[in-house]
Amino acid sequence: MEAVSQQIPLEHFLVLSAILFSIGVYGVLTRRNAVLILMSVELMLNAASINMVAFAAYASPAAFTGIIFAIFIITIAAAEVGLALAIILRIFRNRGTANVDEVDALKW
């Protein structure tokens, strides 16, 4: 373990993470194509990962739990993408579209 100083305050990483997260939220809310929504979700996951790693590096260097968490996040994200894409494929096959606002059978 060695200490390095890069004169970048922790807040910078956190603000970057917040911006990326909000962009991801915007994408989830506006995109029609389910695959694009999934991409926006990946943006949000990455933003969270940045948060974790930044806290691990600055706040608890001895335990570096944040980094371990980031690894798990990537693992789960991979699983999630596989499953979600399979579901999207199935929806597309059944209903002929991958646009979420056209899949609205669950209503009155």
């Binding site: 373990m1 100083s5 922790l10 807040e11 600055y58």
Partner: peptide, 21 residues
Amino acid sequence: LVTTVATSDWPGDADGTITRI
């Protein structure tokens, strides 16, 4: 989110020193 980040006190942000794992 940005307001929260900006108005909070964070540990170890004084000198920007990080630890390499």
